[in-house]
Design a protein around this nucleic acid. Structure first.
Lengths: 223, 223
DNA sequence: CAGTGGTCTAGACCACTCT
DNA sequence: GAGTGGTCTAGACCACTGG
């Protein structure tokens, strides 16, 4: 076996091709590439799979075929806006989870008619009586909790990592399951330190960048 | 073709198995699973590939075989520490890139003897004369620029997204190429707004979480 | 040496979409 | 109907590691 796998050689050649072609150009079918490159379709597909994950190719259903992905329209989403629930949302749903005393508010973040993320917040039902009836789904959640229940929020320490899209999230974001996504989560406390809400945002890595504004750098630890 | 692919059924069953077994338990070989499940090895592999990407299985070379991954030892890395270059580093290398007037400082971030990230900074050589000779590789970079060249830094707006590990980064992080990673980048300006350094950090999503402390939330936009 | 994961092949059938 | 991507099979050879 060569040190450089054949699928990686194929990927390199295909990447050159992608770079030369304008956006949305139809890409040669897998069987044709398999023929031209003298590799099995399986090997070609493995190469193309990575280009799709990297957002360079877009595969369509049926006879649409594969095409060169349009230049990433990357949307800047600020951590601030995500936490405060200020990002444009659609499909806001409020569910009560069984007898678990948990309310879940889920919304799809949309930019230019594209789903770019999912926001999900969990609340204790007993702490927010009548929430499901009172919440209109359009007011930013954090502000609503503040206005309707007098919550004052304390400090926040969000964390961020990568994950693979679950089938459910993949459906909402219009990506294939197991697509890498950016995951941001935080626990919100009130001024007494009691937890108020637990939130979780999943972003399409190829459509959204998370920006951090207002970062306070600690003072350099020097005399 | 069933609505639920066979590889996904396999993944579900294998996940149950993983959840039952203690950490580091040797996992059945692919050929055996293929036999037991009545699926081709290719299909079994596709299921296991995802479990590996999710950090639930670890594959070894040669006769080591696959094993249940130890509970994620997740290291918290603060954005603050990354920017200020305070995280523990090893293998710090300073290269000058051709005649491009660019200096690259690259280091591997280490936690408990595991590589968890790569930090890479680019500087204009002409702005920092003698940098390669003067920099010792241990002082936090930002502090060194401040001390040795009198740089004062202005505001910062880092951004964050997912990416696939390039072969080079994959080698440094001890993961397979195309593994999803967390990518954090920023452009550092001085007080006059002139760019000083461009930096880039890649983190293993399964080993490191990025935390954001000292986040300044904008005032609620209400009268 | 035997057994493992990593790669690769040459087929096959399906659901889907365009013409 | 024809052609696409999505899935699946049953083989094969290789590099590597353990006993």
């Amino acid at each position: 076996m060569p040190a450089i796998p054949r699928y990686y050689q194929a990927k390199t050649r295909l990447l050159d091709l992608v770079n030369e072609l304008p956006d949305n150009t139809p890409f040669p079918p897998e069987r044709e590439l398999s023929d031209v490159f003298g590799m099995s379709r399986t090997t070609i597909r493995k190469a193309m799979d990575e280009l799709v994950l990297e957002g360079r190719l877009v595969r369509g259903a049926g006879r649409q075929g594969t095409a060169v992905a349009p230049r990433k329209q990357v949307h800047q989403l600020s951590l601030d806006a995500l936490v405060q629930d200020l990002a444009a949302r659609e499909q806001v749903t409020v569910r009560t989870i069984g007898a678990q005393d948990v309310i879940n508010v889920e919304s799809v973040l949309v930019r230019r008619d594209e789903p770019v993320g999912v926001r999900s917040t969990y609340l204790r039902a007993s702490r927010f009586p009548g929430f499901a009836e009172r919440y209109d789904g359009t007011t930013p959640l954090r502000r609503f909790l503040s206005d309707a229940y007098g919550i004052r929020f304390g400090e926040l320490c969000p964390w961020c990592t990568t994950a693979l899209a679950t089938p459910r999230v993949a459906g909402l974001l219009d990506v294939r399951p197991a697509t890498p996504v950016l995951s941001v989560a935080w626990l919100d406390h009130d001024l007494r330190g009691a937890p108020v809400e637990r939130s979780w945002v999943v972003l399409r890595g190829d459509r959204a960048h998370l920006t951090v504004q207002g970062l306070q750098l600690s003072a350099p630890a020097r005399p």
